[in-house]
Computed example of a mutant assay.
Amino acid sequence: MTKSPITRDTLLDNVRRVVIKVGSAVLTTRDGLNGAAINRLADQLSELSNRGLDVVLVSSGAVAAGRQRIYERTRKKHRNGKDMVSRQAASAVGQGRLMHDYDEAFARHGKVTAQVLLTRSGLKLRDRFLNARNTLERLLEWGVIPIINENDTVSTRELEFGDNDTLAAMCLGLVGADLFVNMTSADGVFDRNPDGDPEARPIPLIEDIAALDLEAMCDGKSSVGTGGMYSKLRAARRAAQLGVPTLIVTGKGAFDIPAVLAGDQGGTLVLPDERVVSSKKFWLAYHDDPSGAVLVDGGAANALLTKGTSLLPIGITGVEGCFERGALIFIKTADGVELGVGQTNYSADELCRIKGKRTDELAAIIGPTVSDEAVHRDNMLLDAAI
């Protein structure tokens, strides 16, 4: 029994807005940008736009385009420049080249594109997040196709999204998307790593992605690297929480996005969760990396999981890390099991002083209090895909 009436044949029935993410493995070759792939992508996204869909493209490729441009002009190869500064410099060169190629490809269909560069710090503040949403909404009202990428040149290691799968998942909530299409070099998701196991079998449908052990499927987080299948499945897990189905499909060769969306077989369809989180909770949980953690006792853990309560100081048994009020933190059991994340009302120092204390004791310990709750339930997401 499926958790949702969504099938491949009905996928587009209620879709108004789609986010499509395309990675470097699809857009580039050893020599730089793949013009044929860019043109094919523009052809197919223009077709979706002509059908009345709002299309948002999250695109990689700037670094590869920059390295290609540098070599064309200097005949010097910079393929080994994998440090952050080198990647940022190559991205600064390549962003213009990438957008130029996209502009020309979409212009063949009378489509206008817009470059939108985002940083994690830019979406961390709620007012900036809402301003970015308003800008994208206006572009889509005008029939423009936004092309989003991380602003690599100004990002820092602490603030970068880390991969465009993560950025694309954030964009789902940013634009209110109904469908997420993640184009990759693989033909969907397999039960094991097909690169190391010839017996690996494709998985055409994932009904409950929350029940999967993603690390085991992908041979652990570290082995797949940035942009690997682990990050794609984590992005699909986040999309499912937002109520958005995900299609993980190949972008290699003669891919056909409209046909796949119309029901043709290929790739993997990930169904959304039955319980959908709000856009605000989604933003709160994934706009930043947690700065620390609180450990809670069994009673508090049970109340959080079964009753949907807020977390009170009396239920906290330990504090990990150094963080200020308003930081995103993990909520864990005493033995380290992650229950979720939330925005703390108190600093780590304050929580260390009031942990295990009743509400009526707080003021005497730390002075006037900002809240009875350490983490309010409205600012908490359990089972977060961090």
Rank of each mutant, 00 (worst) to 15 (best):
5 P>W: 10
6 I>N: 02
6 I>V: 15
6 I>F: 07
10 T>K: 03
12 L>H: 03
13 D>Q: 12
14 N>Y: 11
15 V>Y: 12
16 R>I: 01
21 K>V: 07
21 K>M: 13
22 V>N: 01
22 V>S: 04
26 V>A: 04
38 I>N: 01
39 N>E: 15
43 D>V: 12
44 Q>N: 07
46 S>F: 09
51 R>F: 13
52 G>T: 05
53 L>D: 01
57 L>W: 07
62 A>H: 07
65 A>Y: 08
66 G>Y: 07
69 R>F: 15
69 R>W: 15
74 T>V: 02
77 K>P: 00
78 H>V: 15
79 R>D: 13
81 G>S: 12
85 V>T: 14
88 Q>A: 07
90 A>G: 11
91 S>W: 11
95 Q>G: 05
96 G>M: 06
101 D>K: 07
103 D>V: 09
105 A>M: 06
106 F>D: 00
114 A>G: 04
116 V>R: 02
121 S>K: 01
122 G>F: 06
122 G>W: 06
124 K>P: 01
124 K>A: 13
125 L>V: 12
126 R>Y: 15
130 L>R: 04
131 N>S: 13
133 R>G: 09
135 T>A: 14
136 L>M: 14
141 E>T: 04
143 G>Y: 12
145 I>P: 00
148 I>K: 07
150 E>N: 05
151 N>I: 05
152 D>M: 10
158 E>T: 04
160 E>V: 07
162 G>N: 02
164 N>G: 07
164 N>F: 14
167 L>Q: 04
170 M>N: 05
171 C>G: 08
171 C>K: 01
173 G>Q: 02
181 V>P: 00
188 G>D: 10
188 G>Q: 03
192 R>T: 08
193 N>R: 08
194 P>C: 13
195 D>F: 15
199 E>M: 11
200 A>M: 11
201 R>P: 04
207 E>W: 12
210 A>D: 14
213 D>H: 11
218 C>Q: 00
219 D>Q: 03
220 G>H: 06
223 S>K: 06
226 T>K: 10
228 G>P: 01
231 S>E: 07
246 T>H: 09
249 V>D: 00
249 V>T: 09
252 K>A: 14
255 F>A: 03
256 D>C: 06
257 I>T: 01
258 P>D: 04
259 A>E: 09
263 G>N: 10
264 D>R: 12
266 G>N: 10
270 V>Q: 03
274 E>W: 05
275 R>I: 13
275 R>E: 13
278 S>D: 14
280 K>R: 10
280 K>F: 15
289 D>L: 04
289 D>K: 12
292 G>H: 09
293 A>M: 14
293 A>W: 09
297 D>E: 09
308 G>M: 06
309 T>N: 01
312 L>N: 03
312 L>S: 03
313 P>A: 10
314 I>L: 10
318 G>R: 00
324 E>T: 10
326 G>P: 01
327 A>V: 08
332 K>W: 12
338 E>G: 10
338 E>A: 13
339 L>S: 05
339 L>G: 05
340 G>E: 03
343 Q>P: 00
343 Q>C: 05
344 T>C: 09
351 L>C: 02
353 R>N: 13
354 I>R: 00
354 I>M: 11
355 K>N: 06
358 R>G: 14
358 R>V: 03
359 T>Q: 02
361 E>D: 15
374 A>Q: 04
377 R>Q: 11
378 D>Q: 06
378 D>S: 11
384 A>G: 08
